[in-house]
């Protein structure tokens, strides 16, 4: 069982959270001219590293806030969590 520290509520069990994928994916800016490749990279292509991974989680059965988690994908160890506007 993962224990995830929500930046708003503190440490809670994995059961309260849902996963939102890679946190480093940047959506192309609204109104900006976007090439097909930029858009496809945003929608489909991922680094998918083995090791440290910055990712989004959602405290869906708690405060319902999205936040960032730094986690090791090989050991599942969680190093740090942060609010969306904070640095990990």
């Amino acid at each position: 069982m993962l224990e995830i520290k929500c930046p708003y509520c503190g440490k809670r069990s994995q059961n309260e959270f849902s996963y939102g994928g890679d946190a480093n994916i940047k959506r192309p800016l609204l109104g900006k001219e976007v090439s097909d490749k930029e858009w496809d990279d945003f929608v489909y292509y991922r680094e998918n590293p083995r090791g440290n991974h910055s990712e989004l989680w959602h405290h869906v059965s708690g405060c319902r806030q999205w936040f960032k988690v730094s986690r090791n994908t090989a050991t599942h160890e969680i190093f740090k969590t942060a609010k969306l506007n904070e640095e990990l």
């Binding site: 069990s13 994995q14 996963y19 994928g21 083995r50 990712e55 994908t73 090989a74």
Partner: peptide
């Protein structure tokens, strides 16, 4: 399990 993993082992939930 629902999150990126290379661990070849999962969790109970």
């Amino acid at each position: 399990d629902g999150y990126n993993s290379y661990a070849q082992r999962g969790n109970l939930p």
